[in-house]
Every structure is written in C-alpha cells, then in structure tokens.
Design a binder for these strands. Structure first.
Length: 606
DNA sequence: ATAGGGTTAG
C-alpha cells in the first residue's frame, strides 16, 4: 500500500533522529509494537520527530498497511503541521477512506494552506467518494476564514446535490460562513431550514445577527434559544455580550450581566474582555473598569479594550496610565493598542503625549504606524489648530489615504473654520465616497460657519443633483427600560406638551446663566421663524428635557445621538449640567461625552 | 479516529 519512496524517506528521517528515542510513549511502543492503543495520545503531546519515529517503526513492521494506523500517523503529522510529510504519506495511501481525506483536508485548513485544501477537496470529489459530514465543515470554514462567498455557495450546493439534510455541523458552518461574508439572508435561510438546532447553531446565528448589524434580533434569538431549553455556555455568552455591546442599551447590558452572574460563568480572558467592552459601550465606564480590575488574567486585548474605553469616554489620562501599567506588566502593545492610546490622546487634547507616542512607537514598541495611527495624529494636530502640520503629515506619508484620514482633516477644518483646506479634504473625501451624505453636510456646515451662503447653496445643489439625501438626526434616551426616540421638532411623543414646556422653562434659565443659542447652522429653504423653532427643538434638547422629566433627580441623563452633536447643543448641554446639577452623558458614534457642572470631559472641539 | 461557535480599533 505504501510506496517505497515514502518508506525510504521516512527511514532516512528516522535514522537521522535516532538520539531521542527515550520518551515514554515511544519506548512503550517499542515494547508492545502495538501502536493502536496509545497512538492518539502520542499525537497530542509529543513533538514531530516522535511522529516520524513511530512512522518509521510502523513501516518496518508493515503495520502501516493497516489503514487505521496509516490514518492515525497522517493525523499526527497534520496535528503538528508537518504538511509535507503528511502529503507524502497521504499520496502513498492507495485505499484512501473518508477519514484519510478528511484528515488531509483538515490538515491543510489548520495550517492555513487554503489552496491545497481546496485542491485536495476537489480531488476528493473527483475520486468518486461523496464528501462526508466531517469534511464539509472544514472546507466551509476555510471559505469563512478567507471570506470566499463564491466557493461557500458552491459548497452549499454540494450539500444539496448529495442530498444531505442540513446536518448540524454542516449547517452551523454554513450559517457562520454566510454571516462572516455578510450574507445574512442566506445565513438565516440555512438556519431556518435546519431540522434540529444545537447550541452551536444558535450561537453562530446569534453572532450572525450581530455581525450583520442587527443586535436586537441577536438578543431575541438568545431568548428563543433558552425557551427551547438550550443551556448556553461561555462561548454563547460571549456572542450575547457582543450583541448587547453593539446595541448599546444600558438596561440590556445589565440583564446580560445579571444572567452571567446568575449562571456563575467564570470570567476567562475572553468573556471578561467582552464584558468590559459591553459595559463601556453601553455607557458604564465605571462598571467596565470594575470588571477589568477583577479579572485574574488579562491579555493584550483586554488591556487595549480598557484603554480604548477610557479613551472614548474622554478619560485620556486614565487611558495613558493604563497603557503604562500594561507595559509594566510586561505586555507588548500591538497596533490596535496604539490606535486606542493615540485615539484617547486626541479626544482628551493630550497633544504632546500623543505626538511623543507616535514618534517612538516603531522603535520603542515595534509597531509600524498604519493609516489609523496617522488618522489619530491628524486629529491631534487638527484639534489643536495645527492644520498645516496635519496636512503636511498627510502629504508626506506613503500609505494609502482612506476616508477616515480625510474625514479627520475635514473635522479639524470645521472646528477651526478653515474653508480652503476643507475644500481640499472634501474633494478627496467625495472622490472616495460620493454617496456619503455626511461629507456634504460637514462641508456645507463649514461654509455656513464662514457665512459663505453661496457655497452652501452649491453643496445643496450638488446633493440634489446626485440624489443624495440627508440622514435625519435622531436622539434617543432610555427611561424606565424603554427607548424614546426624538427627531428635530418632534411632536409625536405622548408627553410632547410637557417636554416643550420643560424646554421653554429650561431655556429661560439657561439664557440667564449665559447660554446663547447659535443660529448659525444649516437648514435649507426654511424661513427664519421656523428655523428658530427648530433650533429650540433639536432632537438632543427634546431628549434631555424628557430625561429631566422622566428620571429621578441626581441620576445621570444618558442620551445617544446618531450623528455628531452640533455646537449649539454642546453649549446647551453644558449649561444644563450646570443649572440642573445633573450629569449628562451624550453618546455620538462610539464616543461618550460626560458633562458635569458646566464642563465636558472631552476636549471641546465644537 | 476526523468536523461547526469566543475578546480590542476603524
């Protein structure tokens, strides 16, 4: 069964490595000459040379003719990622059974040799054997890893062609593959078709929903899963925690957290890190930090997550402290850690610290700056008014420039009212993303701030011409575990009358304290009176007024805005926090701005 | 004997 070349090759290797035959497993083998009993344990804990020795021995004893043993040795090679030896052995096996194929294909997959994995799978199909339940998940997983949706669909059709019903392992692999390729409809189809769903199938579907931007559905699925009597494990919980993190709703985070405590899941690195991320993104930076401090093991990801969390909550110096603590613990930062630290610096206005870090990140930490790091530094320069330096940095870098980079520059232009540079940034930005309404709005706001109404009109014309619609700005707030959503001028809320009353009352007090409404904002084709009305009923203001009505005194008011908070609202909120003695936490995108006693935790950049 | 699900930025 085994070709003689393979035999010779192995014997050669065998004799070259004769010095280390004293390990228990091997001597045991030498005595008994019966590898079946312990070969599998040998595979798992010994090194490659022992596999070679066993291989040599079974060739000598001709036990290699036993397909069971040949397959075992094959698996041993792939386990240790010795693919060349595995392939040589594999090609010598003339009577390959599904196990042999599956192990060889899985071996390539494990070693990230995707091309050979595909090729061998194709050979398998052509060999006349039909692919089995064990091989398909492996190849489907490869499609997932390299996001090869085309091949993934082919494999899906193979499943049907051979008349498989959606066996759980295959189906779970398919759902996951589709999800990672962002094909949520197909993922859901496979999931719905499954005759039986186990914990893994539910878990991948929960992950799929989160991945494709529907965390609410993910949490619903989790409830459904439990209703069907499936008990989650830690991996399932990580997916649920991620869903909750993405949703960003604090009371959901609390429910998930309570459940994890109730089920007494211990916090390993991954679950702990996911929890930090969830609490931070749902607004509780304090709880996030508590989890972090409580964790018994932390890796670079846990540290990066916590550093980033302090960063987007406007706590730049805490982020920096943590970064140094991390270094003291002997953990090497990676590129993401450095993005997090630089981001923290730019959001808190720690210009010197940020620039210092950037300048020595390569030699000190061995991380080569990529476009994300440059973006943070452009932000850093930009916010501190050093627009020329920001531009020079962009011009001098020889990395592909992306939307984020130009966006940071455009944002900086808005803060400092640099129209000329804004036009330059916007030009590059619109070239990369001509359909993104946000860029047009930002540019037109910059023109408006400079009083260049002709240019404002031009941008508007451009938008109309290209059929680009402005996205409405929404703000929402959680009160009594319910989400209340507001848009500008909103009158649909049941308590609308009280809200406007409260707002009017509030505005009088704020104006006495020094708040001046800023009418200098863009609204097209609207007369002054209406414009003023809309100014007084920004979605943020409505949500905050409702928050003042609906939440107990002394508790923070937390609102989320889908777009960036405008300058007028920023000033408004500062005064609200001063007058009412309430902490106001505003989240826009993934940034949190904590307002307390008339000040904002983040560096002002409106 | 071999197979499917887990953490960070943007």
């Amino acid at each position: 069964m085994i070709e003689s070349t393979t035999h010779r090759q192995v014997q050669q290797t065998f004799s070259n490595q004769d010095s280390c035959i004293n390990e228990t497993a091997f001597s045991q083998f030498s005595e008994t000459r019966d590898p079946k009993s312990y070969l599998s344990s040998l595979v798992k804990c010994r090194n490659i040379s022992q596999v070679q020795q066993v291989h040599g021995q079974v060739i000598v004893t001709e036990q290699i003719r036993d397909l069971f043993i040949a397959n075992k040795v094959l698996y041993a090679y792939t386990f240790h990622r010795a693919l060349e030896s595995a392939a040589a052995l594999f090609s010598g096996i003339t009577q390959k059974n599904p196990f042999s194929w599956s192990v060889m294909i899985g071996g390539y997959a494990k070693s990230d040799d995707y091309m050979n994995c595909y090729i061998t799978f194709r050979e398998y199909m052509r060999s006349g054997d039909r692919p089995d339940d064990y091989t398909l998940p492996v190849v489907i997983k490869v499609c997932r890893n390299i996001k090869d949706l085309v091949m993934g669909r082919v494999l899906h059709s193979v499943v049907y062609k051979y008349g498989f019903h959606l066996y759980t392992f295959v189906a779970a692999a398919l759902v996951d593959m589709y999800a990672k390729c962002k094909a949520i409809v197909e993922a859901a189809q496979v999931f719905d078709e499954m005759p039986k769903r186990d914990l893994v199938s539910w878990t991948v579907m929960i992950g799929a929903c989160t991945e494709c931007g529907n965390p609410e559905e993910a949490l619903d699925l989790f409830d459904r899963m439990r209703e069907e009597g499936i008990v989650p494990d830690k991996i399932a919980m990580v997916n649920v925690v991620n869903a909750s993190a993405k949703l960003g709703v604090m009371h959901k985070a609390k429910i998930v957290d309570d459940y994890i405590k109730k089920m007494k899941f211990s916090l390993d690195v991954i679950l702990g890190t996911a929890l930090i991320d969830m609490h931070a993104k749902c607004g509780s930076i304090e709880i996030a930090r508590e989890v972090f401090d409580k964790m018994t093991q932390r890796n670079v990801i846990s540290w990066s997550t916590m550093i980033a969390a302090h960063g987007y909550h406007g706590e730049g110096s805490k982020a920096l402290d943590l970064f140094h603590m991390m270094l003291d613990c002997g953990i090497s930062p990676n590129n993401i850690t450095l993005v997090s630290v630089l981001y923290a610096c730019s959001h808190s206005g720690l210009v010197e610290e940020g620039l210092q870090l950037f300048s020595l990140m390569q030699e000190e930490y061995g991380v080569r700056p990529d476009v994300k790091h440059f973006t943070c530094v452009v932000d850093l320069f930009g916010r501190s008014g050093k627009l020329n330096q920001a531009l020079k940095l962009i011009e001098d870098m020889n990395i592909d420039k992306d939307v984020g980079l130009w966006g940071a520059l455009l944002g900086a232009c808005r803060i400092h009212g640099d129209v000329e540079l804004a036009e330059k940034a916007a030009e590059s930005l619109l070239e990369l993303q001509p359909q993104n309404a946000g860029h047009y709005i930002l540019l037109s706001n910059i023109y408006a701030k400079a009083g260049k109404w002709k240019e404002v009109a031009k941008v508007r014309e451009l938008m109309t011409h290209q059929r680009i619609k402005k996205i409405p700005g929404w703000t929402w707030i959680e009160v009594d575990n319910k989400i209340h959503k507001f848009s500008v001028g909103d009158q649909t809320h049941p308590l609308s009358k009280e809200i406007y009353e409260k707002l009017k009352n509030l505005r009088e007090k704020l104006e006495v304290a020094g708040y001046v409404p800023d009418t200098n904002f863009v609204l097209h084709d609207i007369d002054e009176e209406l414009k003023l009305g809309l100014l007084h009923s920004h979605s943020e203001k409505l949500a905050i007024a409702f928050g003042l009505i609906g939440t107990p005194e002394g508790t923070p008011i937390r609102v989320t805005k889908n777009l960036r908070v405008c300058g007028d609202c920023h000033a408004f909120i500062k005064f609200v926090s001063l007058i009412t003695k309430r902490v106001v936490v505003v989240r826009d995108a993934n940034r949190f701005h904590h307002f307390k006693e008339g000040a904002c935790s983040c560096r002002d950049y409106w």
